[in-house]
Design a protein around this nucleic acid. Sequence first.
DNA 1: AGAAAGTTTTTCACTCAATGAAAAAGAAAC
DNA 2: GTTTCTTTTTCATTGAGTGAAAAACTTTCT
Lengths: 261, 261
Amino acid sequence: MSTTSSTPPTPSKSVTARALSVLGAFSALTPRLTLSQISRATGLPVATVFRLAGELEEGGFLQRDSSNYYSLGIKLWEMGLLTPVHGRLREIAMPFLLNLQYVTHETVQLAVIDGLDAVYVEKLTNVVDVPVQSRIGSRIPLHATAVGQVLLAYSDAALIDEVVELPLAEYTPDTITGKRALLRELSNVRDRGYAYSASEYLPGAVAIAAPVFVDGAIEAACGVVNYDNRADIEQCYAALQEACRGFSARLNELKAAGQSF
Amino acid sequence: MSTTSSTPPTPSKSVTARALSVLGAFSALTPRLTLSQISRATGLPVATVFRLAGELEEGGFLQRDSSNYYSLGIKLWEMGLLTPVHGRLREIAMPFLLNLQYVTHETVQLAVIDGLDAVYVEKLTNVVDVPVQSRIGSRIPLHATAVGQVLLAYSDAALIDEVVELPLAEYTPDTITGKRALLRELSNVRDRGYAYSASEYLPGAVAIAAPVFVDGAIEAACGVVNYDNRADIEQCYAALQEACRGFSARLNELKAAGQSF
DNA sequence: AGAAAGTTTTTCACTCAATGAAAAAGAAAC
DNA sequence: GTTTCTTTTTCATTGAGTGAAAAACTTTCT
């Protein structure tokens, strides 16, 4: 019964929040930072960063190289591997993805939904010199990619409504940017059971994606991308379907057998 | 007289150290924990853990499911991907590993040295139902595995001396446990340019491994394992050599071109 | 069903650990 | 050489973190 305005009573930053913001200063574009760079990036006084960074290094969350640059520590990587998205998804998916890659010879991807984005959990390419567009961990739009559309199509109506109302960025001339058009496409995806996207995000990239269900709810999406229409889509689709079926079955099997999540 | 206490590793510490120890309570064996479990594992009072866990959740480092279980958050996974071991090694290695896996059909692995252990950075198997012995992130002994022996063989003399003096655990009857025998084997590895290990760690597992150099110093080791001697070792070896050469070349190329680390 | 045991959340007075300005010590740039 | 920038140390101040205890919930047992 609080009639008080929802003013967040959090003007100050706790020590923990500060420590996390030190870690947050690192990004794909800035994977290496000096003390003073961290200080500037976070707005925290150098002396404070000095102490916090020291403690984080102590714990293995940061590491410091010979030229006084910090980067994120190996402990952080190890902990990331304990995350459900890795241990309960990518690890189980891997054999299926490998086989799918083996059969199709194309780029294969696994994505989940997080918030209002799709996130690549795994991505396999055997082309060495490919200009990497998006890496594992990248966030990509739900409306403009095959995996995104699949993830969205089978999500709760509430989420669909929310995304549909968002301003839909136009990445290429083929990107779906209209609310009605997107809703129609999502409906198509559900009818077909898979998504097909040609040049909606990256020109020249043709992708198909299919859903992975656990207990009837969508858990992830698998996709196959090929550039410049090299591959036989029919064949890719068959392989994709098989991979998704196998993966779904495995997840459900583990869920039934395993005690938790 | 052992001071047996189930909470030894938590003398009074800084806030940051406490927060990190909350994260540290999670492991491969206990990827999900309740508040009170964390409290017991860390030796911190529940009220303290309550606050810290709340802040870590706020920052995306922990997540809480419907049944009040905490697990490590997606943010942690994302940050792990920014770590050099991932972005500067596994990501670049991946196409070569995939191709190696494709050619040999066997389990393929990439490992680095960290402290006195080898750590698996990547491991590819396309067999679905394999009883997973060691996963990505696992630490494995330097003296008893092919990748470990390669990593050690090309390390600094100081490190070799240190490892050689350690008590060398005997995993199978074929494990090298003697100091002199290990030194001799390392010498063999250097002479041959690769390591060959049969049932030294896991009975029935035959592995070969080769080094990956950057600027003349060893950076990682690639290996191929096959169980029950199914594969043609000669063929595997050729493929392995090619993968390592390609990968080394790519790393050196990037190092020369790229600005840093 | 109710009681008992366990877990999560809130409260609050105390106090100790975190703070950051400033100065010292090092590096690098000019 | 001087200047400019960065890292590290010091230290008086204080407010953020603390944890015992009680309240609020949940689960388990009889």
